[in-house]
Design a protein around this nucleic acid. Structure first.
Lengths: 280, 280
DNA sequence: ATGGCCTTAGAATAAACATTCCACGAAGTA
DNA sequence: TACTTCGTGGAATGTTTATTCTAAGGCCAT
């Protein structure tokens, strides 16, 4: 009779692995076969149906269900959830683990504590920087820098919540000796500010949901005038994607409390600095 | 074009993403809703049942199936396979190792490679966020939030390189319903913009070396008029320290290639959000 | 040997599921 | 206004899927 230690906490994949390993010697023949299969093919356990898993493990479907019950689960479906959690944990890089880690530490606990808020934003910022490194492709970076390098004047378009990024990019580019026009809509002269842009120039557009209407309006006009465009946005459905020469997609973190601008800021700065380095 | 044209091969997740984005404008209402949901929640698309996905996307199950067919698949099940492939593709992340690995080996040094620049800035940003969590004292946060909460109008002063931080803070505070005046010196009217500030208001000043002369000039004037001041700066010797009610000191990293604004941005956002939380 | 007990295979069953169908309604056209 | 087309919601449908049940097989102690 296999010991049923119910003190075990269901849920985490690692716990399940150890539990399977622990009970393994006590299992019956079939159950042991399944236990080994489960540890070696966690992905198939996560995605397959009972029949598929049974076939791959060369046992009967009913044996799979018995296996799940022997581990204390109500059935295969419940067990499968644990294997699926492993998949979802690994895909959006590590932020989930990191944040749940913080949550476990207690540092995250009450949102009414200002320090907890700081910890949260800082953590989200770090994670977004981390994923930025993963997502941005070298080729896009090179292409964007080429466009900027060839431009006589660089136009920067970022309104609403994205304006700080535009301001930062403008500041750095000017410090580095570039000719830059920031399209800030001052005096409601947004269109006029960009009136003299030509295909010999370049545009950097920054926009995140909710997309600023003026940005959405001006961007297509500018690309229609054959202005090469570099877009920094959060989705391929954003209004500044179509017609852009290079698109940097920086998706929002699912559970971000409030959009953090750190990743776009960092990318903007990279473009500016990379520009001067490659021209040396 | 950001990526290669629509060579339409089913199977890979990235292709599917672009295909969805491409067809998005032509879709009907419901289909567009689903398209957006699919791009934003690929994990749920991979693991959920039709009914679950439909509920989360707030559409009918039949609409989900129609969506799959519109993309050329036989049904939801076929489409789901593609989303599942994304899950299995990303196996073991282990980021911390990878990043420290990057740092250790030479790829960090070669500054002429744009991707190296990105890696460098992102890493510096992460480090600065980490140290921000350590340095900022709970008491200072609480005090600063109290001051902001008591203020009738919040004045934000950040010029030159610090302007993006000021802009971001202003944006978030206004979104949260605060009355905010940003002292941006537009039309060289810096002094006039702050003329009506009273002790019932509050000032947030942001300045980093090299300190903007206008900031250095205006700040003492305002504190002399008994305006409570919160300073975000990099040194206790900065011109916005003396007379401030709360000082957040965020020292520059010794070898930062170029100042990264991520830590100040993060702190500013914390102040704004913390303000609303404590008032609930 | 043989009776008791546990395990197993496979069919039976019930639940969950994806998919289809149809009627309704809105938007466009003559 | 009347007619057509297309999009949509919701129930009906038929299929897939997990689970349960039962009879039979193997093992061991007596």
């Amino acid at each position: 009779m296999p010991t049923k230690a119910n003190a075990r906490q269901h849920g985490t994949y690692e716990n399940l692995r150890h539990e399977i390993a622990r009970q393994h010697p006590d299992f019956s023949d079939r159950l042991r076969v399944i236990a080994e299969f489960a540890l070696e093919h966690p992905t198939e356990m996560a995605l397959g149906t009972v029949a598929e898993v049974a076939q791959r493990a060369k046992v009967q479907p009913s044996a799979i269900v018995r296996f799940a019950r022997a581990l204390g689960y109500g059935g295969f479906t419940e067990l499968q959830q644990v294997f699926r959690s492993r998949l979802v944990a690994s895909v959006p890089p590590s932020y989930k683990e990191r944040i749940t880690g913080l949550r476990r530490d207690g540092r995250f606990q009450d949102a009414n504590n200002p320090q907890a808020v700081l910890t949260r934003f800082a953590s989200e910022g770090m994670v977004s920087l981390e994923s930025l490194q993963d997502r941005v492709r070298q080729a896009d970076l090179v292409r964007a820098i080429e466009l900027l390098g060839a431009a006589e004047t660089i136009y920067v378009l970022g309104l609403g919540g994205s304006f700080p990024v535009a301001a930062h990019l403008t500041y750095v580019l000017r410090k580095l000796g570039r000719r830059v026009v920031i399209l800030d809509g001052l005096g409601s002269a947004l269109g006029d500010q960009a009136a003299s842009a030509t295909p010999a120039d370049a545009l950097v557009a920054i926009s995140f949901r909710v997309y600023n209407p003026d940005t959405a309006r001006l961007f297509p006009e500018l690309v229609a005038r054959r202005l090469p465009a570099i877009s920094i946005t959060d989705s391929l459905l954003s209004p500044i994607v179509e017609g852009a020469s290079v698109v940097f997609e920086i998706p929002d973190m699912p559970e971000a409390a409030l959009r953090t601008m750190v990743a776009p800021m960092c990318l903007a700065q990279t473009l500016a600095v990379g520009l001067t380095l490659t021209l040396d």
